[in-house]
Every structure is written in C-alpha cells, then in structure tokens.
Design a protein around this nucleic acid. Structure first.
Length: 822
RNA sequence: GCGAAAGUGGCGGAAUGGCAGACGCGCUGGUCUUAGGAACCAGUGGCUCCGGCUUUGGGGGUUCGAAUCCCCCCUUUCGCACCA
C-alpha cells in the first residue's frame, strides 16, 4: 500500500536496478544532495561535525575507469556515506591528476595532443564515475592541468623558492633514456625507470630540487603520531632510512690537509679497517690518484660511467675496483692503508666513501677476497677469540679484540667510546645519516606546469611575480622530448624569451616543467577552496575542513605521493600558510584487486570492464560484490560467478522490506537484529566491509526463514545498514516506506541495545580434556558450580568420565565448561 | 640478501586463546511453478563399525584447551636492495 503512494516513476515492485539507479542519480544531481555551496563550505554547511573524506584522485587514462579504481573509490565512498549516516557533515570530493609522462606518452603514441586528449578522458571518467553512485561533491572538483589549478602549483613553487626550500643545483641525477627526462630517486626501482623500465643513467645536470632531506627526522618522528596502516608507515620508515653511526676522518698520507671522510654505522670496527674505497665519482679521486695509477683509474672510471645503474646495482656480481695508489691513515691504528675505488660504493649515500672492514662486512669481505687485501678480526662473536681464523665474515656484535685499549669492550659501548675518542682528536663525530634524498622536481618534458622562474643576464635567477601567474603552458605542435636533456619548451623562443620583471631587460624562462607529484602533493588543500580566484586555499575554509579526516588509497603511493604531501604540508605550516603539519590524520591502504590470482593488466588480457557488470546487475550490486570479495584492506580475487550472491541478496532484501507487515517483532529476530547492528557498526568503522555484508546476509536469512513474512521493525533498519553499499536501492526503499527526502540527509544509522543482543539462555560448550562432548543450554550468568553440575549430569559427558578421576574444571562464563580428567 | 604480510573445503573467504569452515559461489537431492540466471527446504572437509575418529603448509613446543601464542623448516605475495 505504501509503495503505491510513493510510486511516482514507473518503478515496479520487482527490483529493477537500472530504473532505480537512473531515478536516484538524477535526483541527487537535481537536488544537490551531495554538493556544498561555497557558502556552505565556508560556514560548514549542513549540521554535524565536518568530516573530510578523501580518496586518491585518479589519473584519467584513455582506457577509462577500471575495476581497481572502482574498488578503491567504493570502499572510500562507503566510509563517507557511513559517516554521513552517523550524522557527520561529510565532504567527499574527486578530481583528476592529469599532468605527467603517462598522459604525454599515450598522446605521443596515438598522435593526439594532450590538450585534446585529457579533456576527453576527463569527460569520459566523469561519466563513468557518475554511474557508480559515489557521493561526490561535483561542485568542488580539481583538474591539475587547468591553469586555474597549476597557477597555484606555481605559486607553491615560488613560496618554496623564497624560503630556500627550492634550490637549483648542479648534481648527479637519474636520467631515463626511455622517457628522456630526469627522475626522482623515488622513481628509480633497482636502477631502472619505474615507468618504462629503461636502465637509468647518471648525468650531472643543473636541476631544481626541494630540500626534503632537511625534513627527514621530522617526517620520521611524526609517523608515530599518525593513525595510518602499518604497512604504509613501515614503507615510509624504510624509505627515510635513518641510520646512526659516525663520520670518521682518514687523512691521506703525504698530502697535507687532505683527508677522506666516511660514514659508518660500525665505528666499533674501525681497528679492522684495512683499506678504503671511494665511489668512482668521488671528487677526491682525481687529486689523490698517483701518477703510476692514473691510467688504470681513468679506464675504470670510464667503464663505470658508461655502464648503467641497473648493471651497477646487481649485488651478487663479481666485485670490481682499482687501487688509486694513495694511502690513507687509519685514525685508530695509525697504520697506512690503501685507497681503492670501486663501483660498489655509491656516491649518493653517506659521503661516497667507506672504510672497508672485510672481517665484518660481507661486501668488503668479497672485495678483499677478489683483490687479496688483508682481513682483520676485531669483533669476537660468541665462541670466537682474537685468534679465530678469518675465513668468513662476522657481521654481528660482540666483544672487541685486536683493538688496542678497547679490547674486551662490548661493541655497543665501543661505538660511542671510539667515536668520542676520535672526535677529541678532530678525526670524527657521531652522525645520523638518512637514505632520503632531496626531491628533484625538474622534468625535461612538455606536459606539466612550467617552473615559474626567469633567468636574466643582469639580475640572475628571478622568480616570476605572483601576480603574473600562471605561466601558461603553450600549445605546441611538436612536444616530443629528445635525448639532449633540453626540454621541448626550449625549442620555442617566442615562448621563453621575455622581459625581466625587475630590470626590464631580456630574460629567458625556465623551460623545464615540474614533476607531476608536485601537483598531487597539495590537491587536498585545493578541494574545499576549488574555484577561489584569490588564493590557493582560503584560510577560513582550510581551518574548518583540514586536515583530512580519512584518506584512502593504494600502497603504491606509500613513498612517493604520501611522503611528498607530508613534506609540502610541513613546509606550508612552517611558512605560516596553514595551521597543521600532517595532512592526513588517518590513512588506510586498500588492497589490490586481482583476476585469477594475477594482477590485471592489458598484456595479460585479464582486465575487467566494469561497465558490462553495472549494465547487467546495477551499480549497487557491483559495489556490494566488490566489497564482499575479501577484506578491503587486503584486496581480493575477482570471479565473475560470485556476483550472483550479492545480487540475490539485494533482491531478497528488497522483497523483504516491501513485503513486511506491521506486527510485533519476534524476540529471537530482535536479538539477531541488535547483534547485526552491533556487528555492522563495528565493521564499518574498521572498513571490514566483507564481514559486515556477511552479517546482513545472515540476518536476512533469519528474518526470512521458511519464507516467513518479516516484521516491519525487523527489516526497516536494514534499509539504513545497506545504504552505504547500495545507496540507490536504499533511497528507493526509504522513499517507498515513507521516508522523507534522501536517506542520507534524514536517515540515521540505527543504534543497538547491548542488552538486547543476548538471550537469557546460552549454549555452553562442554569439553572433556579439551574435546567437545556436549552442547548444553544453560541460564545466562550461571555460576561455575551450577554449570559443572549440569555438565556432569549429561549422559554423553558421563560416558567419558567413567573410570577416571576429575582433576580440574575450567569455566568460562556463559561459554564453556572443560572437565579435565586423568 | 634484508624487512613485512600471508598459507584454512572444489573456489572466495570467516573465526586472533574456547563449537574450525560464518557468509557467498559451486555442487547434490527435494518442494512449488508460467520449467527459470526465480523463491523456499535439506545436504555439502575426510574417514566411519554411526559410538566416534580425524582435519587449518610441514615439524616441534607452551596450555585444561592452539588456525590463533613461541621455535625451526617449506611456499607465496609485497616492499627495499652493494644504504656502508
């Protein structure tokens, strides 16, 4: 009867997802159900606490939205919808991360200009995203390639420049010969380009860097305060790579004032340093190499430079190297030791030089073996002594031997003692070293925001005045990069030649663009202020909405995007632009969706096209199915057959709600209802969606046992419980059962009474010696002795007690009695 | 090599010290029926003399009791990788 009253469209009694979904999508758009006006954003619009629900914005590829995107967004959307049903004022934006090499390469390959390609892709993505029923505020969206956005990316660069955080320096950089551009260290995986897989070369170029390494300690310390997935936190920790040790000074024999500084985590082994190794690129090499050795050294350096990083970073190959002829003085022993160069020492870590302790370091040992260098034992592990043979490496801690006055000291203690003693003689100091390097942001490509810097013959480096932003990326026909290391924009004099803003003379624009990761390192600040022409982020709005409450995304961005975002936020805080230094209060990494156990990829041909499934079963079923596959934070295996489970479930739920009748609820059903609400509430808070769905299914099975007609009171709460998963259906059921407006505005997450989740009687497990022998119903709260008597009176239990002595009774209230016999 | 996570029916998975296999797929049988990609009912790890026995990668241990905690081994996935 109720259904006839609200049946405005021709939605029939049977569940037709396509009709229901079309109807509600249109209504959400018309009524702006999910959007905030800018005014509402400024005043914190609706009622309730502001809750910023963020998900990693997609790169709008030409292939369109894939299952992985939908999986990620659905989990995040459910989170947002749940918070909204709890009464929070949820802001859930989406945008597009559309600059970068990926788009540019695609454009080059297909002969379409990115300025044509990207808007088309964004349009397609938007269309697809709308079909899935996300709660996006389409009035606050972001496109990193729009001048309205990158104007502020450039503004950011200028702030960093003025603060001395952005610096141009001549430095060895990772050059990708495939992409024809430099890469950040984070983009180099085992010596290869993470994008195209080419072996990365080292080139020395003048590039813009952000001094993220100055923030290493803070980035590390703050991790402890964040509510983040452990996996993500650990990846950042490893990437920052803090190690404690000492920097020690080894004077060069016969060269006054010349010395080699090394970083070591094992100053306790300095007495065992029998030679030194410098990276082939080390600036000292040229000066200290003796004349006799110069030819050999130069040849070796040539060979190393012409090889690539992939090759160089193979760890199990035969060690190579060459003696420079120079001799250094071991500051601990006073002995002269040879100085070699070898490619296993990397210029980019520590000081680019090491003291080699072959007795206690595997790599040094391998090198010493190859070149017949002396090995000396200075640490004795358990069972070793000073005279133990040095046929193998011992890299653990222990007691010092062959170390003069330090003999007998434990290595932990010796580390600080030796460092202190050397420091007193000016030959060392305690030192913390980080793996994290400065972030190279220059890219010799076309598809990115031009770096807003000018070079004037008279004034030198001049920042573009802020009121002249944006420096617009021009449309150029030939944007193909080349191997020269010079950007495509550098081929366009009409663009780069300009007037110096300070002297009026001729100036040349910086022709490199910035790294895409800079675009995405601050987009979350822009969303609430999207459309603001006066500032990148309105101070008032930002104070109301940030930091982000929950951020959900993939772990593939654990070090790149998340680290850069944290860094950018810290700098902005230090510069007084924002009031917080950590952008994402809570971060959860979602899992990966695979197909038949393998990652989905075009080359494997196992990519799932979501459109077909949405067409056939509807977005609600598709969403529910994806979340039911497995734990959201672990991912799952996409199996087409499985979708009928959630489809049937939603059908049954629909029927149950619409066929319910008004009569008192059965006490057993009521108990199950309260238990189900409790379970769903707990699970949604933890993003444990698969078990929440299972709990609802289980409950619906109880409600409909034997095809019984359900009580209204029993099924009405299900409409709200399912709403985060199947929002269209929930709206329709809400409206058909007399609800006003949108369930997300007027519905409330149901509450439960803990007392009602349990019955007066409970089923006890009765064990004999830990083995199940009976299940007996007893009164809730029964005492141990009563329960024991009940258990002992059971015939089957008694059978197992014959002829043995009862030794002990283990009692778990309302749960279990275990009779221990012997 | 280092670090981390995981290993449970035919399959996806549930249970994190107390009934292993919830929920779903698939499968078997049945009811109804406009014979169906519907709904409902019963069953579904293995063995069984129908009392039970056995079972969570393998082996050992702790415990009254272990998928869960500890040790060793195997396998898989992910991250880092000559980081001094």
């Amino acid at each position: 009867m109720i259904r006839d009253m609200t049946d405005e469209t021709h939605v029939t009694d049977s569940y037709f997802p396509a009709e229901v979904e079309r109807k509600w999508r249109a209504r959400w758009d018309e009524e702006g159900t999910n959007s905030f006006t800018d005014d509402a954003i400024a005043r914190i619009g609706r009622e309730g606490r502001p809750f910023y629900n963020l998900m990693m914005f997609p790169y709008p590829s030409a292939e369109g939205l894939h299952v992985g995107n939908i999986y990620a967004f659905t989990g995040a959307d459910i989170h947002g919808r749940y918070r909204r049903l709890l009464g929070d004022n949820v802001f859930e934006p989406i945008g597009f991360d559309a600059f970068g090499i990926h788009s540019e390469n695609f454009a080059l390959k297909h002969g379409v200009h990115p300025m044509e390609l990207i808007p088309r892709n964004i349009e397609n993505f938007t269309r697809q995203l709308r079909r899935v029923g996300f709660m996006y505020d389409w009035s606050h969206t972001v496109d990193t390639t729009s001048p309205e956005y990158y104007r502020w990316t450039q503004w950011l660069f200028l702030q960093f420049y003025k603060a001395g955080v952005a610096v141009k320096k001549e430095a060895p950089v990772n050059w990708c010969p495939g992409c024809n551009t430099v890469l950040a260290n984070e983009q180099v995986i085992a010596g290869a380009c993470e994008r195209c897989g080419s072996a990365v070369e080292m080139r020395t170029l003048s590039q813009w860097f952000f001094r993220i390494s100055d923030y290493a300690q803070r980035l590390l310390d703050n991790l402890k305060t964040l509510d983040w997935s452990d996996t993500t936190r650990r990846m950042q920790e490893n990437w920052i790579g803090r190690s404690e040790g000492a920097e020690l000074v080894f004077p060069i024999a016969g060269m006054d004032g010349e010395s080699v500084r090394v970083f070591t985590t094992r100053p306790d082994t300095v007495f065992g340093a029998t030679y030194m190794v410098l990276a082939p690129e080390h600036p000292l090499v040229d000066r200290i190499t003796t004349d006799q050795r110069r030819t050999a050294v130069n040849e070796y350096i040539q060979a190393v430079v012409s090889s690539d990083l992939v090759n160089r970073k193979i760890t199990d190959k035969q060690k190579t190297g060459v003696d420079t002829g120079a001799r250094a003085i071991n500051p601990a022993t006073g002995q002269e030791i040879p100085v070699w160069i070898a490619d296993y020492v990397l210029m980019e870590y520590g000081t680019g030089a090491i003291m080699a302790v072959p007795g206690h370091d595997e790599r040094d040992f391998a090198f010493a073996q190859a070149f017949d260098l002396p090995v000396r034992r200075v640490i004795a592990g358990s069972g070793d002594s000073a005279d133990s043979p040095v046929g193998e490496v011992y890299s653990g801690g222990g007691t010092l031997v062959n170390s003069g006055e330090y003999d007998g000291m434990e290595s932990g203690e010796a580390k600080s003692a030796i460092t202190a003693a050397l420091a007193q003689r000016g030959l060392g100091e305690a030192r913390v070293n980080f793996r994290l390097h400065d972030w190279c942001v220059s890219r010799q490509r076309y598809w990115g925001p031009p770096i807003p810097i000018l070079y004037c013959d008279a004034c030198g480096t001049v920042p573009v005045p802020e009121d002249q932003l944006p420096v617009t990326l021009p449309f150029i026909e030939n944007y193909k990069p080349d191997a020269s290391g010079i950007s495509p924009l550098a081929r366009h004099e009409e663009w780069y030649l300009t007037e110096c803003p300070s002297c009026g003379g001729r100036a040349r624009r910086e022709t490199d663009v910035s790294d895409t990761f800079l675009d995405s390192a601050w987009y979350f600040l822009r969303y609430p202020s999207a459309g603001n022409h006066l500032a990148p982020f309105d101070p008032e709005v930002t104070r109301n909405w940030l930091p982000v409450n929950t951020y959900i995304g993939g772990n593939e961005h654990a070090v790149l995007h998340l680290l850069y975002s944290r860094f950018v936020t810290m700098v902005l805080k230090d510069l007084g632009h924002i009031h917080f230094e950590e952008p994402f209060t809570r971060f959860r990494a979602h899992g990966l969706i695979v197909k038949d156990g393998a990652k989905m990829s075009k080359s494997r041909g196992n990519v799932i096209v979501p459109d077909d499934f949405i067409e056939e079963y509807g977005a609600d079923t598709f969403r529910t199915y994806l979340m039911f596959l497995g734990p959201y934070q672990e991912g799952g295996d996409f199996r087409e057959a499985g979708i009928t489970g959630p489809y049937n479930f939603l059908n049954r739920l629909w029927d149950a709600v619409l066929s319910a009748e008004d009569r008192p609820i059965d006490p057993a059903v009521e108990r199950k209802l309260h238990a189900t609400i409790a379970k769903c509430s707990e699970d949604l808070g933890e993003l444990s969606y698969n078990t929440a769905i299972a709990a609802m299914m289980e409950y619906l099975n109880v409600v409909r046992t034997g095809g019984r007609t359900p009580e209204r009171e029993a099924v009405q709460p299900l409409v709200t419980l399912i709403a985060p998963f199947a929002p269209h259906m929930a709206e329709e059921l809400w409206s058909r059962t007399g609800g006003e407006g949108s369930i997300f505005d007027n519905g409330r997450w149901p509450t439960f009474d803990p007392a009602k989740t349990v019955a007066d009687e409970v089923e006890f497990v009765v064990q004999v010696n830990g083995k199940l022998r009976a299940r007996l119903v007893m009164r809730r709260g029964i005492t141990e002795s009563e329960a024991r008597d009940v258990a002992l009176s059971d015939a089957n239990v008694r059978r197992f007690l014959e002829g043995v002595e009862l030794r002990k009774v283990v009692f778990v209230p309302d749960r279990l009695v275990n009779l221990v016999v012997g």
